[in-house]
Amino acid sequence: MKIAIGTDHAGYRYKEKIKSFLTAAGHEVQDFGTFSDESCDYPDFIFPVAKAVASGEFERGIVLGGSGNGEAIAANKIKGIRCAVCWNTLSAEMARRHNDANVLSLGERMIYEDQLEAIVTTWLETPFDGGRHARRIQKIVADV
């Protein structure tokens, strides 16, 4: 799978870990930055990830920050993005099953490191249920 990833300084350490295990699992990962833990502004790195997913260049995106909230808000500004903040495997599973989330937002300060791989793997491997949920997604993507 082609995956875009980006973070601010607060998610930098987890971004590096995610890149390593995704690459080892055979995924193609493009890092949109940041490339250090020096303070920076998350929209500068989140918007490019979201735009790359929305354009179809990448199948999925992963964004990170301290809590993941600001990153999800920024990503969701891009038309076609359904970014969900996930904090455990159940939230990751439901983000895919019910919301067809195409971008995952993670908070490095909110998730224990030993749970990180399981959350990302669950989100990547869980299919969208469709059915009644597809009708709801259509309402979300419709212009209001």
Rank of each mutant, 00 (worst) to 15 (best):
K51E: 15
Y12H: 14
Y12P: 03
G26M: 00
I18V: 14
G33R: 13
E28S: 14
A24Q: 15
Y14D: 07
T23V: 12
H27R: 06
S36H: 03
F21C: 00
D44K: 13
Q30P: 00
H27N: 13
A54M: 10
D31F: 02
P43Y: 09
T23P: 04
H27T: 11
C40W: 03
V53C: 08
A25H: 04
E16K: 12
H27I: 12
F35I: 06
A25Q: 11
T34R: 07
K17S: 08
K17M: 12
E16S: 10
Y14N: 10
R13G: 13
S20G: 02
K15Y: 07
Y14S: 05
D44G: 04
V53A: 12
V53D: 10
E38D: 14
S20N: 08
A50M: 06
Y14V: 10
Q30W: 05
P48N: 12
F21W: 02
Q30K: 15
D31Q: 05
H27S: 04
F45H: 09
H27K: 07
D31T: 09
I46W: 03
A25I: 00
A52H: 01
E28Y: 06
T34D: 07
Y42F: 14
G26P: 03
T23E: 15
E16M: 13
D44F: 00
Y42S: 05
A25T: 01
Y42G: 01
K17P: 00
K51H: 11
A24E: 15
V29K: 07
L22R: 05
A52D: 00
A25C: 01
K19I: 15
P48L: 14
F47C: 05
A24G: 06
P48F: 12
V49G: 03
F35Q: 09
A52G: 12
T34E: 07
R13P: 04
D37T: 10
L22F: 00
V29A: 06
D41Q: 08
F45M: 03
R13Q: 13
K19V: 15
A54C: 10
E16R: 12
E16C: 14
C40L: 04
V29G: 04
F21K: 08
E16P: 01
H27W: 06
A50R: 01
R13V: 10
A54Y: 13
C40D: 06
Y42R: 12
F35W: 13
T34F: 11
I18S: 13
F21H: 02
S20Q: 13
K19P: 05
Y14A: 10
I18G: 09
L22T: 06
A52M: 03
Y12D: 05
T34V: 15
I18K: 12
S36D: 11
